[in-house]
Computed example of a mutant assay.
Amino acid sequence: MAGVKPLAGQPNSGLTRKRNIWNILHLDPVLLSLLLLLMGAGLFILYSGADRNLAVVEAQAVRFGLGLVVMFVLAQFEPAVFRRWAPWLYGVGLAALVAVLLVGVGAKGAQRWLALPGLPRFQPSEGMKLLVPITAAWYLSRYYLPPTFRRVMIGLAIVLVPMGLIIQQPDLGTSLLVGMAGIFVVFFAGISWKLITAFFALVSVSAPLMWLFVMRDYQKQRVLTLLDPESDPLGAGWNIIQSKTAIGSGGVDGKGWLQGTQSHLEFLPESHTDFIVAVLAEEFGFIGMLALITLYFLIILRCLYIAVMAQDSFSRLVAGALTMTFFLYVFVNIGMVSGLLPVVGVPLPLISYGGTSAITLLAAFGVLMSIQTHRRMITA
């Protein structure tokens, strides 16, 4: 490899790369291409899901553009910068979550947003999906891995404090995503199977207590609706019944773009946000769903490659956790729209309409690109 020599002591490490435009821009061309393809598909489907409302598509395109700018900016920083600033940004995030509970803006029975003078309304809990795993990785990577029991408990505390604040908003779906993002870091740090077994046992034992003292009435109703949606077909069960009808009516190759009856005749609620995958399944059928899942699989595969090739514990933990969080987004949304999981308000990544979620996801991909493109390289 002209002009490049391996790292000392690692002649066959495979970590050296030719310097090209992508390394200079600190962008991963494979991941970027897959993301652009996914966003393009998202805008295409959104036009139908929003009932041909071009203004909605244009607004989402602007948000994608802002998210790509954020991704590019974050990709320029070395992973050490994220590690250095993690605890401070985590503290700011906790303060913002407390502010939401005190002076936040409410909508539809939930108080999840902050409206600061001169800034658009935003949802601080979305940022914690990124800050919590980075902060947990910052703490655990400071010590030898696998971590001791005491350090595992501190790592879990880093995860549980913001999770508890988000539950109070209330926003159970986001709190679970934030919690899982942090728990993935603790898991990848190498905890023993005894602790993993104890954790699942604790969750099982505490589930009845959560049902009685933590979960609100509408959250309980979602679980009951999952078990028997036909018990209230015109009320709580309406969403999932119409969603499953749309998915099933798509068949193998679908009804055709803009030809879906469930969404365009307004049977399917939230057709451009949480239930947009039902629009895709109805109009493009099994083939369309297979294509979408394949695209998601390729993105996840590339992100796992970045995690494996990372050169330090902090980068590996962050990359692995962000990848699994993205997978969780996909799994939960498709699961709830298919009637396999309760409806928890989790959008389909870069397909559903929404600004904060899209920007947060693209910011996470910016961190992944930083990890990939700042790997050490020694030139001759």
Rank of each mutant, 00 (worst) to 15 (best):
D232M: 09
G237R: 06
Q221R: 08
G254W: 03
Q262S: 12
F286K: 12
G285M: 02
F297T: 14
H272S: 12
L280V: 00
L227S: 10
C303S: 15
Q259L: 09
I287K: 11
I287G: 05
L298I: 03
T294R: 07
A278H: 04
G237N: 06
H264V: 02
I276T: 02
Y218S: 04
G250V: 01
Q221W: 00
I240V: 14
M289K: 07
G235S: 14
I247Q: 04
K255Y: 06
G288N: 03
D228K: 13
P269V: 07
Q242S: 08
A236H: 07
D253L: 13
G285W: 01
C303H: 04
Q221A: 13
P229V: 05
G254V: 07
T261M: 06
Y296D: 01
L265D: 09
S231N: 14
S271W: 03
G250N: 02
Y305C: 06
V223R: 08
K220G: 15
F297L: 11
Q242Y: 05
D274W: 06
G248M: 05
A236M: 12
D253C: 12
L280Y: 00
G254Q: 06
I300H: 00
L212F: 11
G250E: 02
Q242A: 05
E230M: 13
G285Q: 01
D217N: 11
I240S: 08
G235M: 13
G237K: 05
L268K: 05
T273S: 09
T225M: 08
Y305W: 12
S249G: 09
A236I: 09
R222E: 11
L304W: 05
I299Q: 02
A236R: 02
G285R: 00
I293M: 04
I293W: 00
L258F: 04
R302M: 05
A236Q: 12
I299D: 02
L290H: 03
G250K: 01
T225R: 07
E266F: 14
G250P: 02
I293A: 04
N239Q: 15
A281I: 10
E283Y: 00
E282V: 02
K255H: 13
P229H: 08
L295A: 06
M289S: 11
W211Q: 12
F213V: 03
I287L: 15
S249N: 13
T294N: 12
C303D: 04
R216I: 06
L258N: 04
R222H: 11
C303I: 03
A291K: 05
I241Y: 11
A236K: 07
Q259M: 10
Q262V: 06
L212W: 11
Q242R: 08
I293S: 01
V252M: 10
P233W: 03
A278K: 03
D232F: 09
L298A: 06
A281L: 13
G285K: 01
H272R: 11
E283P: 01
D253V: 14
G288E: 00
P269E: 00
G256I: 10
F297N: 04
G251F: 03
L292F: 08
G254C: 09
I300K: 00
P233D: 03
L295H: 03
G237S: 08
F275A: 12
M289W: 04
L301Y: 06
E283A: 00
D274C: 08
I300Q: 00
F213P: 01
Y218K: 08
G248C: 01
W211P: 14
T294W: 12
L292K: 10
T225P: 12
D228T: 13
E283H: 00
